[in-house]
Amino acid sequence: MSRFETDVLAVLPRLKRYARSLARDASDADDLVQDCLEKAFARRASWRGDNLQSWLMTILTNLNRNRLRKAGTTPAMVDIDDAQAVESGQASADPLERDRIVAALDRLHPDQRAVLMLVVVEGYAYGEVAEMLDIPLGTVMSRLSRARRMLATILEGHNIVAFRRTP
C-alpha cells in the first residue's frame, strides 16, 4: 500500500461515522463513502498533504449536499426499517432516544446538519469547520444555532424534552 492509501485507511472509520451521521440510512452512507473515496483517489495528485481527514470530510460534505439537491430539497421520511438499518452496528444506550433523534435530524437542512455533526460528533472547532466548508465563521455559528433550535423544536413537538443530569 502507498502512504496515501495507508493514510486513507486509517481515517476511513471516522469518515464512515461522519457519513452515517449525515445520511438517511446505512446504504446512503455507504454510497457516500464510496463516492468520496473515488473522488479522493481521482484527485490525490491535488491533495496538499496536510490533514487528510478534514479534506475527505469536506469532499463528503459537498457530495452529500449535491446529492440531496439532486434528489429534491425535502428529505424523505425515514421508514422504520431504514432507521433500524442505521442503528445496527452502532452502540446506543437507548434505542428509542436514538430513533427519535435520527428522525429529527432528517428534518434539518443538510448544511445545518453537517455543521452540527462536525462540531458535536467529530469534535472540530468552529474555525476549523469554517475552513473545511469554506464559509465565514459567522455562517458556521448561525447554522449551528439554527440546527440546535430546530432540533429542540422538533423534539419538543414529540412531547419529550431531552434531559441531562448535571453535576
Partner: peptide, 14 residues
C-alpha cells in the same frame, strides 16, 4: 443534552 444524545447515537467509530 442534544450533544450527549448525538454522540450517543453516532459517536461509535466503526
Amino acid at each position: 443534552a442534544q450533544n450527549a444524545a448525538l454522540r450517543d447515537a453516532f459517536g461509535a467509530t466503526p
